[in-house]
């Protein structure tokens, strides 16, 4: 039992750890714009926001690569908003409010959308619960002791050797040897 809990907890730990790290990476940062004045906005700033906004009238096309006139207008809108000192988040909020959450690559974390964050974690935890119960049942059913014999039989086939590889560890090498001794 103990041996089993270890890998599962490691898996879980890694998973949560990974989730946390992934969300850390996702947080980009933009320099705060100076107040009250129109500032120069580069294409790169526009694109870095536009790539997270999907064209509302085409399908699955982010604004930064979309080639239609409408998308060009939206990019201009983003530029204007940045020039007026709005932040990245302001722009996202504007698009989400006006066009609906579906235009954001990462939909707003509210309402039904929360499922997108809950479901993966829930799937792994609930699935993991049933999976570990299933594994335990299988383990209970497994006879103890006699399998060790099988292993000894298998390893016994391998002739002792001075090779640095712990060849008795590998049933495959045993198989190679068996093939060769035929």
């Amino acid at each position: 039992m103990k041996i089993f809990r270890l890998p599962i907890s490691i898996l879980m730990g890694l998973f949560l750890f990974g989730m946390a790290s992934a969300s850390v990476i996702a947080q980009g940062s933009t320099p705060p714009p100076p107040d009250g004045e129109v500032r120069e906005v580069t294409d790169n700033e526009v694109n870095s926001i536009a790539r997270e906004v999907y064209c509302p009238v085409c399908e699955s096309t982010p604004l930064d690569v979309c080639q239609t006139q409408a998308c060009a207008d939206w990019r201009d809108l983003i530029r204007t908003k940045l020039e007026n000192g709005e932040t990245r988040q302001d722009v996202y909020d504007y698009f989400a409010e006006q066009y609906g959450g579906r235009v954001l690559a990462t939909p707003p974390r509210e309402g039904l959308n929360l499922l997108l964050w809950i479901m993966p974690v829930a799937a792994v935890i609930i699935g993991g619960f049933f999976f570990s119960r299933f594994m335990k049942n299988l383990r209970m059913a497994g006879g103890d002791g006699k399998e060790d014999e099988i292993e000894t039989v298998e390893t016994a086939v391998v002739p002792p050797s001075s090779s640095p590889i712990p060849q008795s560890d590998d049933e495959y090498i045993a198989q190679v040897e068996r093939e060769l001794s035929k």
């Binding site: 799937a123 699935g127 049933f130």
Partner: peptide, 10 residues
Amino acid sequence: MSEEIESTVE
């Protein structure tokens, strides 16, 4: 999907 997994293994 997860329901299906559970039920098959249970």
